[in-house]
C-alpha cells in the first residue's frame, strides 16, 4: 500500500484514505458551447496515458476531503510529488528536485 503525501494535511497517509480522480490539468472550458465537436471530444475522452511521469488528481476522501494533484511515475508506481489543486503543473526541474 502506497503512502501519499496530502499537501493540505502535510502528512504521509495510507493509500486507503485516498481516491484517484483522473488525469490532472484538464481544465473545463469556461464556455463549452464555443468548443467544436472535435475539441469537446478531446476534452471529454482523450487522455495522455504516458509511460513515466503522469500528472494526476487525487482526493483525500477519508481525510481532509480535499482534491489535490500528484506527479506519479507509472513505471515504478512511485509518487514523485503532490501539490494543491489550482497550482500550475510543476516543471521538470521541480519534479527532479522533489525526487531528492
Amino acid at each position: 500500500m502506497l503512502l501519499i503525501r496530502c499537501p493540505y494535511c502535510e502528512q504521509d497517509r495510507a493509500e486507503v484514505e485516498f481516491s484517484y480522480a483522473g488525469e490532472a490539468h484538464i481544465e473545463r472550458p469556461v464556455d463549452p458551447s464555443a468548443f467544436s465537436d472535435a475539441e469537446w471530444e478531446a476534452f471529454l475522452f482523450l487522455r495522455s496515458n504516458p509511460r513515466g511521469t503522469h500528472f494526476e488528481r487525487w482526493v483525500h476522501i477519508h481525510g481532509c476531503a480535499r482534491h489535490f494533484n500528484a506527479v506519479r511515475d507509472t513505471v515504478s508506481d512511485k509518487f514523485l510529488m503532490t501539490y494543491k489543486a489550482g497550482k500550475p503543473r510543476p516543471t521538470k526541474r521541480e519534479i527532479e528536485g522533489a525526487k531528492k
Binding site: 500500500m1 497517509r13 495510507a14 486507503v16 484514505e17 477519508h62 481525510g63 481532509c64
Partner: peptide, 17 residues
C-alpha cells in the same frame, strides 16, 4: 486503522478509515 497512532498527538484529531 492504518494510522501510526503513536504519531497522533494527545489533543489531536483526524478523519480516517
Amino acid at each position: 486503522c492504518p494510522l501510526d497512532l503513536t504519531a497522533l498527538p494527545v489533543g489531536g484529531c483526524t478523519r480516517t478509515i
